[in-house]
Amino acid sequence: MLIFAVITIEVLLMIYPISWVIRTYIPVVVIGSYFISIIIEYIQKKKFYNNLLDTINELEEKYLINELIKEPSFSEGKILKKTLNEIDKSMLENVNKYKHFQEEYKEYIELWIHEIKIPIAASKMVIENNKNQVTKSIDEELDKVENYIEQALYYARSNTLEKDYYIRKCKIKDFVNESVKRNKNAFIQERIKVNIHDVEREVSTDSKWIIFILNQIIQNSIKYMKKGENKEIEIYSEQGKEKVILYIKDNGVGIKEEEISRVFEKGFTGTNGRISNKKSTGIGLYLCKKLCDKLGISIKLDSEENEGTIVRIIFPRSSYINFE
């Protein structure tokens, strides 16, 4: 194209009697300015695309790229920016659609759970009014049903983006007692001793959530007790530096060393969970971890095979500090 333009100019110039100096000067200027403009454009584009690549590499949420690049001055850049804009918009619509689906689903689960609790409550009342060996056995099964339902509820709650909990000051003693009471049947039947001490401390948390978490841990301890005598669960708290630690310690079968790091993984059942009559789902501890993360507390597990397991729930300073 450049050569064609120069030849055209040369042909036109041939008509007029102009000195060869000018005749060479004009095409040189044309060719020169052409190259200069190419170089300028190259520099502009290089700057733009380098900036684009650097930004996207640094960016954690890459979908935000469009917000962070300047409107380019050249046309391909403008097209790119416009395309990104459109992609963003349609992606956002899509994401919102799924957010909405999920929100709706969660609402349905919550509603369903409230609904199903009514027939369970009614069944439990029938059992209470007709106590015998058969109904007692049904009652035990209902307790299991209740526990699965509870897990589903908290699973739904753990997946939402918005805040679904309410933090206030709670006495450790209150929520520990409540979660132990919930498991009284198992404790009494299995003859497991409960030793609660040093729980006269306060932390700020959501008591319902923490009761659910403790409940899962206690149920695991009960489930994986050793056979025989001296079964015991010990629950106590300690004031640490900038934190309060709640310990749930059992002398059960413990966990294999190589499996400890995986106990909070979703669906992880481990050797213990696969023993035929235990039927672990691998959801309990996974949920505990997830809920703890949301509440801003940490949960740690140590164990020795055949010795027992200790779970530590660590409430950081911010969760028990007094803001008055």
Binding site: I113, H114, K117, I118, A121, L153, Y165, Y166, D206, K208
Partner: peptide, 8 residues
């Protein structure tokens, strides 16, 4: 008596 189980 309720089946709504949350703090709020």
């Amino acid at each position: 008596i309720t089946s709504r189980d949350n703090e709020i």
